[in-house]
Design a protein around this nucleic acid. Structure first.
Lengths: 250, 250
DNA sequence: CGGACGGTTGATTTGTTTCAACGTGGGTGG
DNA sequence: CCACCCACGTTGAAACAAATCAACCGTCCG
């Protein structure tokens, strides 16, 4: 989804925060060399892993946070009856593993949706870092806060909304996050399957497919399987705020 | 909903945590006299207010937390288009106003659903109290954690579920909370309207009404408008875990 | 090359909403 | 204190959106 790992032959030591193109969007933010150094000593950069790799499992002891350098993941929860549902999609610079929130075990499992590279930050190391560099804690908490907002939005998105409203909202959510990563907010790559999108939005995969096609027919987006280009952003926001707006595209 | 304010002629000074029947379920927990005293000096007990009273408004500066002594409330969010939706129902001993979470303004508005009495705890006073009595902070955070669980559950409840599953789940959620308050978990009083329940569950009020009647016809609960008695708890859990279970009551 | 999974499209079914009418109970004002 | 009134609740009939069932296709991977 986001490729900042184009050079696959970097040595382990070269994968430092100072070298990372995502630095400004990630935990270090735009802080000085000292902060950068402090993080780099405790964060562990891992080589890329293939699609379908579990970063951690629901219920496992909560030992570390994860950050993507490239690729994308989904966070899934398996309920008592074995049905899995997608709780969120995690992109580079997102804090991964924070769903637990002061809890001893991970709340969900996180799986890569494509070949991805990530960094690991031990929870104890992080707490120590907070003491040394309080500015880091501020960045951390602001990231947590915006995630809480996303989660709340995810709930209201399910309440009294049509399939078109949900899909439109999903597209704009992804677009916003691309924008936050300094990337083209109109060119989206849907690394997740239609099943995953459906699970996330509370829809059948067929409905996701059909809705995307209708948007495409109406000239709101262009859809080529996983490649989505936003053409008429205004229509998308209109659809979200009034289900009747979508009626026009029949 | 919960009446611990039966004696309406208590003087202000008598409405202390030490006197409160809910003490053990509330912030003070089962801690010693010193903690009780410390809280009592900073918490402000207010006389009962009628139904429809706003404790605070969405967007207003976040200055205090609230705790119900009696009655019940709903937390509502008004979106851009003016549509209001119920985010949660707050009962006695719940921390009210924590939706903001480190933010300068309240995230939602909280309205009483019936005549209710509450206490006010200034956010600055609370922070000071945390320094003095760290045990209080633990209780506070554990209450926040269980609320986060409820919120997460509220989301999964909307995903791929039928009206019957949602209503059954709602009934058991209320029942659990009654149980936590040491009250009869089978005798429920729905202080909120069918509209509110529908808004909370993502259903039309008519659907809530019909579903409750069907449960009543099947002998799972007995419904007398706002009075609900749980008769067959096992069936309710079965319905939640398998929509097919509800089919039998056709 | 073949198989399996993901994606699309169509036909049908079904649960829920919407619209409409009627009942009811609590609160208010005469 | 009673009567009116209005918001809330219930019930029925019709409309509709999405799920389900089913078939087919493309493509990526073994």
């Amino acid at each position: 989804m986001v490729n900042s790992e184009s050079n696959r032959h970097m040595s382990q030591s070269e994968r430092t925060c100072a070298m990372c193109q995502l630095r400004g969007f990630c935990l270090p933010g735009h802080m000085g060399e000292d902060v950068l150094g402090a993080i780099s000593t405790i964060i562990k950069a891992r080589p890329p892993v293939p699609r379908g790799t579990y970063l951690f499992n629901q219920g496992a002891p909560m030992t570390a946070y994860y950050f993507l350098r490239s690729g994308s993941t989904k966070a899934i929860v398996v309920d008592d009856d074995g049905r899995e549902s997608v709780m969120s999609f995690l992109l580079p610079t997102d804090i991964i593993g924070a769903g637990a929130m002061q809890r001893p075990v991970y709340y969900d499992s996180v799986v890569t949706l494509e070949r991805s590279a990530y960094c690991v930050l031990g929870i104890k190391d992080l707490t120590a870092l907070f003491r040394d560099k309080p500015a880091i804690q501020d960045t951390f908490e602001s990231k947590i806060t915006s995630r809480i907002h996303l989660e709340r939005h995810a709930r209201t998105r399910l309440n009294h909304t049509t399939a078109e409203q949900r899909v439109a909202d999903f597209i704009l959510e992804l677009s916003d996050r691309m924008h936050q990563l300094g990337r083209d907010p109109d060119a989206l790559y849907l690394s997740m399957s239609r099943y995953d999108i459906g699970s996330y939005l509370g829809l059948a995969p067929e409905t996701v497919s059909r809705t995307l096609r209708r948007f495409g027919d109406a000239g709101i987006v262009s859809v080529h399987v996983k490649q989505v280009q936003i053409i008429d952003r205004k229509s998308l926001t209109e659809i979200i705020h009034s289900p009747a707006a979508a009626r026009k595209l029949a």
